[in-house]
Simulated assay, not measured.
Amino acid sequence: MMPLQGRLRGYLPSARLLVAVLWAGALWVLGYIAAPAVFGIVSGPLAGDIVGAFLGRLAWISFACAALMLVLVRLSPDLAPGRRRYLSLLVLAMLACALVIYVGLQPAMAALREAAGAGGVRSSPQWTQFAVMHGVSQLFHLIESVLAAVLVLKSR
């Protein structure tokens, strides 16, 4: 019978893949299914509030998955040093995208929406600035989503 440590090592590639798939799935479902569906059904600021709440939860999923992936990569004896470094950098790049969105862009966009008042951001002078930030946020989400596909393919 294999010792416990040996059996746990055997599960590390599967655990890495599971975390990568969870992270990628969350990104893809929210960004390409849930958010467009919400904006297709609900109009105005309420849609932004709903998607904003989803994005806040997605950020915490991203932070947790990044931390777990970094630990799993570090503990994986099956990974060559170059591959370990590659996966770590990939995870850190995805984490950077999540941080830019959650810490930088989302609070700034929320402040613009609040400053716009009851009329909504579309009818305010801040609309152009908001639209640019929204586009940058979408770009970072797209980058993180593509990196997630690479992570899934390279995690096993």
Rank of each mutant, 00 (worst) to 15 (best):
A80T: 15
G31C: 06
P36I: 12
V51F: 00
G48D: 02
Y32Q: 04
R83W: 14
R74K: 15
L46D: 14
P77I: 10
I50T: 02
D78K: 15
R57F: 05
A24N: 05
S43V: 05
V29Q: 03
R16I: 08
L75S: 12
V29I: 15
F54T: 00
A66R: 15
R16D: 07
R74L: 15
S76N: 15
F39Q: 01
V73E: 04
L58H: 03
V38Y: 01
L75F: 10
S62R: 10
P81E: 11
D49V: 06
L72D: 05
R84Q: 14
G44F: 00
W23M: 09
I33K: 07
L22N: 08
D49H: 06
G48I: 02
A80F: 13
F63S: 03
W23P: 05
L18H: 05
D49L: 12
Y32K: 02
M69S: 13
A35W: 06
S62E: 14
A20F: 12
R16T: 06
L70K: 04
V42N: 00
V71W: 11
L58D: 03
L75H: 09
V19S: 04
Y32H: 07
P81H: 10
L17D: 07
A59H: 12
M69F: 10
A24E: 03
R16Y: 09
R85K: 07
L75G: 10
V29S: 06
A26E: 04
S14C: 15
A20Y: 10
F63T: 10
A66Y: 14
D78W: 13
L22C: 09
L27S: 02
D49M: 10
L72P: 11
A64R: 11
R85H: 10
R57C: 08
W60I: 09
A34S: 06
G52W: 03
W23H: 01
R57D: 11
G40L: 07
L30Y: 01
I41K: 05
A24I: 08
L17S: 07
F63I: 06
G40D: 10
L75K: 14
W28Y: 12
C65L: 10
R83Q: 14
R57Y: 08
D78A: 15
G82K: 12
I50D: 00
A47Q: 00
L46K: 12
A15F: 11
V21W: 01
Y32M: 05
L55T: 06
F54H: 01
V42I: 10
F39P: 03
L30N: 13
A37F: 00
I41P: 01
R84D: 04
A34C: 08
I50F: 00
L58A: 03
W23Q: 05
F39M: 05
L18V: 08
L27K: 03
S14K: 13
G44T: 01
L55D: 01
V73N: 07
L68C: 14
L79R: 15
L18N: 03
A59I: 01
D49F: 05
S76R: 08
G40N: 12
A80L: 14
I41L: 05
A59Y: 13
